[in-house]
Computed example of a mutant assay.
Amino acid sequence: MDSLYEIIDSTLQTKNIVAKQHDIGVLRVSGMDAKKLLQGQTTCDITKLSAENGLYGAICSIKGRIISNFYIVQNNDDVLMIMAKDLVEKTLLHLKKYAVFFKTELVDEQDNVKVYKKLAAKNCEADSNVASNIFATTHDNETITLTIGHEPLEVQLLITSAKTDIEEKHQDLSALAILTARPLISLEQSETILPQWLNMQSTGGISFTKGCYTGQEIVARMQYKGKSKKQLALVTWHGNLDQTQAIVDEQAKNIGQLFFVTQIKDTYYAQIILNIDPSEVELPSFGWQRINTIATSLLT
């Protein structure tokens, strides 16, 4: 069984990867009440947001399902929310319902801001505590760099003006970013997933001390009463498998669902939402087609 580090070493081979994120969009929240609005609508504690500290969080429905999740940075007096491009409009419309009570403005910045992802070998000197809810942010000319993970490799988001071009490198290997523990959902997945199913309680995406926000009661109840075992795990395999098949165990019992999959050459990497504790998983498969390797049982 390959470890994450063996997979990374054999694929990365000391290369630095820089790739433009065509499926990522940016929502700008500005005005004197921008943070006050977001504090009542997000799972993360917006009071901890600053020029040096970024956050990871979600906006939930009253049923506790994720409408959209995001990385968030401060840009001067404005707040930038980085999320799936196909969720920017839905998020904007959701927040507008509450923004009428605040001095704030919401703007879709897809034509004015670009986002790149940079991957590199793990920085041994960096704090690799995956549970941290604070993410280092730096500002250099027109580029904001947000470090979203150190483990098992270093991943950064580069947020820059649409007029600024950053040289892309080895973008064919950018699929390795799936190994980080903080995925973003798409429009298709919106309002179908609880934050805990993506391990957001373990990866800094939920504050349980910040106070009320939409969906907070459901999210807190799930945390403290533990009614669902669902959580995110990572698997890899070689060659084409029928991904429309259910993920089952040796007894053909359904144990999870495919969340996201990508590939580099003939190796596939997938995040799956398991219905059972990852320690109980031995030989999962798509129907009768065996998944060759569990690279890690849990992405935390």
Rank of each mutant, 00 (worst) to 15 (best):
Q171W: 08
E125V: 15
A252T: 08
Q196S: 09
T164C: 06
G211F: 12
C60I: 05
T42K: 07
V107R: 13
A181S: 15
K97G: 04
E6P: 00
V113Q: 03
E280L: 13
L299Y: 09
D2W: 14
Q39I: 10
I291Q: 06
E109H: 06
K265G: 02
L37N: 03
T296P: 00
K227C: 05
E191F: 07
I185K: 04
S128V: 13
F101N: 09
T214R: 14
L274F: 04
L299F: 10
H170V: 04
A295I: 12
L232S: 12
N53Y: 12
D266Y: 12
G40T: 09
K90T: 13
V26T: 10
Y268Q: 08
L87A: 01
Y98A: 07
T203L: 07
T138Q: 03
Y269T: 13
L146H: 04
L92M: 13
C212R: 11
G25K: 08
K225D: 07
F101W: 07
K20P: 00
E154N: 13
T192L: 13
K20T: 05
D242N: 03
I148H: 01
V130T: 12
L187P: 00
T192A: 12
R28T: 05
D86H: 03
I294K: 06
G204L: 10
R65E: 10
K36T: 12
K118Q: 14
F286A: 03
H150W: 03
T42C: 15
L232H: 06
H22E: 15
R221S: 11
T11L: 14
L55A: 01
A246N: 11
T300Q: 08
A131I: 09
L274V: 09
G205D: 04
C60Q: 05
I46R: 04
Q251L: 02
W197H: 13
E154A: 13
D249W: 02
I8V: 07
K169M: 14
I82W: 03
S186P: 00
K15V: 07
L27W: 02
N133L: 06
T147I: 11
S228E: 10
I247Q: 05
G31H: 02
S285K: 10
G205C: 10
N133C: 02
I206Y: 10
L232F: 12
Q231S: 15
L27S: 00
V29F: 04
L198M: 09
T160G: 02
